[in-house]
Nucleic acid binder design. Sequence first.
DNA 1: CTGAAAGCGCTAACAC
DNA 2: GTGTTAGCGCTTTCAG
Lengths: 338, 338
Amino acid sequence: MKKKFTIRDLAKEAGVSVTTVSQILNNKGDRFSKATQEKVLALRDKYKYVPDFNARNLILRSAKTIGVLVPNIANPFFGTFIEGVQSVARKEKFIPLVFSANRDPNLEKYYLSQMIERSISGLVIASATMTTDTINEVISFNDIPYILFDQNHTQQGDRVQTSDFLGGQLAANHLLDLGHRHIAILTSDNPSENLNHRMNGFKKAIADHQLNFDEVRDVIQAPLTTTGGYQATDQVLKTGASAVFAANDEMAIGLLRGLHERGVKVPAEISVMGYDNIYLDDYVYPRLTTVQQPIFDLGVGATEMLIELINSDNNEDHVQSFPVKLIKRDSTAPYKGN
Amino acid sequence: MKKKFTIRDLAKEAGVSVTTVSQILNNKGDRFSKATQEKVLALRDKYKYVPDFNARNLILRSAKTIGVLVPNIANPFFGTFIEGVQSVARKEKFIPLVFSANRDPNLEKYYLSQMIERSISGLVIASATMTTDTINEVISFNDIPYILFDQNHTQQGDRVQTSDFLGGQLAANHLLDLGHRHIAILTSDNPSENLNHRMNGFKKAIADHQLNFDEVRDVIQAPLTTTGGYQATDQVLKTGASAVFAANDEMAIGLLRGLHERGVKVPAEISVMGYDNIYLDDYVYPRLTTVQQPIFDLGVGATEMLIELINSDNNEDHVQSFPVKLIKRDSTAPYKGN
DNA sequence: CTGAAAGCGCTAACAC
DNA sequence: GTGTTAGCGCTTTCAG
């Protein structure tokens, strides 16, 4: 390891004091002569001097770092969310520390402690398995502001959300408008709170139409993945429904494959709807009708709120809601009777 | 902001010196009495004391952080790569700092400088637009070890790679074995070096079969995205080829959609091959035949090499190669003549 | 205009 | 067994 080139070396080289260098490099050097300023700047470039981050933050008490906890980075949904986070973070000179915890509580705790150790300024928690209590226990003790998104539990505290209830209604109404009267639900076997809202909205719309809905027969539960949807195909078919609402696009896409393999025509024989509007929806067959969540914007919104929180020490609860929107594609069609 | 609870506070509380606390907390406290050790540990837990990261690293001269530069985090290919990185990093107590630079040179430079400022211990660069020269200029000056993967330029230095040339041959031979004699290539309009190898392997196999291949007519260039592939559909059809080899799965999937919209049957009328084996391949219609790259393993391998480099100060060039493998699915079929 | 000196929170020689 | 003390590299009063 080469010896570190410090501010002292730079000062010596320039024939000035460390104060002078420090001030000039931090844009507080108006009081120094033009000549000195230029000399220092030139030398900085020549030696590519970069102030030591640790030393600097030790004094400034801020690492300008925000933690981001997501369940699965390889999922484009969260990837896009992270891009939203990054775009704001960059603008505000923060650096995001991203962790994919796979909904594993141990991993979540490990990463959480790592982040605290690194004195992150704030945290965006997307889809953790932690309860608000756990979060408060671990984080609040350290006074770290955080924003929640897509949690497992009804939450308090600052958060971003989309109108899941409305989204569920949107989905139901679309299917209802197409004339479907027997609709199945393909949901998670371990639903998070927002998913429950989504499904409640859906059921509400069904109930509003005086349709009866059999909780046992018409609700299929499986993991929220393509594989989960794929493996649930037979169960879905067994309901005899003319349309299915899947809790997310991944499941819907898996289901599409299962149906295709069994020769069941979508949407001719059964309509399928997803939720999220991931970019693949356009590339499956048939193209998937879904409800869009503005995922990039959610990342942006969460980060903006967080940074505001960090900068303001403001303690009111903030909740920001983002709109959802029906995206009609080819996987749903009018009910054709029997 | 609450006042920080420091090691001194903890020491005072325990009625011992800071040394005692520091040593015990760093597992170097064998020489202290059992009673003292337990008292300190108990108090640490009670106050949830966490040593200040900045202060600590200022002394230890290591942030145990590795930087990871990828072009696009929302792309599952890189998402999986990152998961590979994370799995090793966690084991070795390193924290990955992930940046999605979108192949934007300015962004790349910005993130690079941010990382250097944060005194990262090492760097994994996946698919940057930077030349090795730029990298060396910016990084080597700071003596930061790095591993390359999927670069734009023929590279020197430590790196992980897959046998792209072989992969291209594998693809070609599969198509050739099926009886195809006129095969088109759908490649990037801004190919990286590994892509060139891939295509060269492909062309070599074609040439070995004494088939002639028209560089102008049979090579279509487009962005490496689903949209790129989709929009290139007409050009691909114009070649009159009975099979197409796309440079990556995303393009192939886009092409599949374009072909489907035009009523061109895959694989009956035209065979389509992709490259990468992203998890969606199983969920498009028809399921995509491709060449698999062990992307998670690449992330693992790159990180292992990097950490070894960090720990050893060893300066030889290391190159680790990972195998590729043909994955036959439903988008390719025997040539049926005209 | 410029610099000396204090100190951020921590670790680790080196005493005792 | 335990404590004193000297920094790590930097920013920032405060005194020239």
